[in-house]
Simulated scan of single mutants.
Amino acid sequence: MLQPIATRAPDFVPDQITDEEGGAMLRAVLHLFGKWEITDEEASVLLDLPVRTYRRWKAGQPGRLDRDMKARLSNLLGIHKALRIIFAEPVRTYIWIKAPNEAFDGRSALDIMLGGELTDLMRVRRYVDAERGAW
């Protein structure tokens, strides 16, 4: 006979990303977008911002970074980190984003991420984390 198992919440609770950390993440992602050679329109979809707002942020006038934005930035940087572990040559990490991939039915990782949802970014991140052997 099945017996219920008592469970409790884990003791570890990650710290929230501070606004200062979020600002640093945003600057890193803006730099990364340049390496990925994506358009302002694509970048605005990835960050879920109007293009005008993205261009203002890109020009050094960022607005408030809410929880969703910090999660988007975290996933984008996580994707980049995993790719840097997978590929020894940095250039390969940048071109992989636009390359067709069988794991995505011939679409590129960028195509998947341009779905615009946070879960689209998370899908690509889970894939690259699994490929690198998440530790």
Rank of each mutant, 00 (worst) to 15 (best):
F33L: 06
F33C: 08
F33S: 05
F33A: 01
F33I: 03
G34C: 02
G34K: 04
G34A: 00
K35E: 12
K35T: 00
W36R: 09
W36Q: 05
W36P: 02
W36A: 01
E37A: 12
E37M: 11
E37R: 15
E37Y: 01
E37K: 14
E37S: 12
I38L: 02
I38M: 01
I38G: 10
I38H: 07
I38V: 12
T39D: 07
D40F: 12
D40M: 06
D40T: 10
D40G: 15
D40V: 03
D40Q: 13
E41V: 14
E41M: 13
E41C: 07
E41K: 15
E42T: 03
E42S: 08
E42D: 12
E42H: 08
A43M: 06
A43E: 01
A43F: 05
S44E: 03
S44L: 05
S44I: 01
S44H: 02
S44V: 00
V45A: 02
V45S: 05
L46P: 01
L46E: 06
L46S: 05
L46R: 04
L46T: 01
L46Y: 05
L47C: 09
L47T: 04
L47Y: 04
D48Q: 13
D48F: 06
D48I: 00
L49N: 10
L49I: 11
L49F: 11
L49Y: 10
L49M: 15
L49C: 09
V51F: 00
R52V: 04
R52C: 00
T53N: 11
T53F: 11
T53I: 14
T53K: 14
R55V: 12
R55G: 04
R55F: 06
R55P: 10
R55M: 14
R56Y: 08
R56H: 12
R56D: 13
R56E: 14
R56A: 15
R56W: 06
R56K: 15
R56V: 12
W57R: 04
W57Q: 03
W57Y: 13
W57S: 04
W57I: 06
W57H: 07
W57M: 10
W57T: 07
W57A: 08
K58Q: 09
K58L: 06
K58E: 07
K58M: 02
K58F: 03
K58N: 07
K58T: 04
K58I: 03
K58W: 01
A59F: 09
A59P: 06
A59L: 09
A59M: 08
A59E: 14
G60F: 03
G60D: 09
Q61R: 15
Q61S: 15
P62H: 08
P62W: 03
G63N: 12
G63S: 10
G63A: 11
G63L: 08
R64Y: 13
R64S: 11
R64Q: 11
R64M: 09
L65H: 13
L65I: 12
L65S: 10
D66A: 05
D66G: 14
D66Q: 09
D66Y: 04
D66N: 15
